[in-house]
Design a protein around this nucleic acid. Structure first.
Lengths: 116, 116
DNA sequence: CTGGATCCGACATGATACTG
DNA sequence: CAGTATCATGTCGGATCCAG
């Protein structure tokens, strides 16, 4: 059992044998990832603190963790500026942007089917 | 659930889109749900044992649990026949089928981006 | 401001034996 | 065949303190 490099708990060994859905799931699975991607898709780039403000309820620990996983999976780009105080901006990579259609459809589906 | 900053630093589309995504995420969240839905989408209806065979590595406990949640969310229909031995077939509800486009796109994206 | 490190409880998931 | 019950394990995710 190969130790996970950095992504998440789902082992990617016997995933490829099944179908693309499993890989997509392994990349997007997580309580906050879809929301993070949606915000970045909407606003191009966001600072760490801006993300934290928008993701109501997330802890710093989780925000950092999810961002790292998204970076490891090549969906999110991290750009830090050598300033004081530090400034870090996150944005979508092309791979991340290629999820746009899926994200939009998920948003539409959720809005339509969430009857509370 | 929509909270509003009085004016419009954040546009409405944005907020709705994220609420929708949050609901979609909450419904699809889980290690196996997407795969279960994908198999049911593909094969119309499947028996419990057929699902178990296809979902390599899932435990009975998890399969039942995920199926129950999918039923509770109205995505999957359970049809049991009064026979001996018992026969139970699972299929997608219309709500479940309405995820078809999303599932197909996730499968395509996963196949295209899973470079192993 | 942007994180890193650690502790800990809650919960997701798995293994296995058992039942109608 | 289609589940349940029980026990065991690991991961998630929050709180808190610390650092450049």
């Amino acid at each position: 059992m190969r130790k996970q490099s950095s992504t998440n708990t789902i082992n990617k060994e016997h995933i490829e044998s099944n179908c693309g859905i499993a890989y997509t799931n392994s990349v997007l699975n997580g309580r906050w990832k879809l929301n993070i991607l949606a915000f970045l898709l909407d606003e191009e780039k966001l600072r760490y603190s801006e993300l934290k403000t928008r993701l109501i309820g997330i802890s710093e620990r989780m925000l950092i963790a999810q961002l790292k996983e998204l970076q490891a999976d090549g969906l999110v780009h991290r750009n830090s500026y050598p300033e004081v105080p530090p400034r870090v901006e996150y944005s979508l990579t092309p791979k991340g942007k290629s999820l746009e259609k899926i994200l939009i459809q998920m948003a539409e589906w959720g809005t339509k089917n969430n009857q509370n």
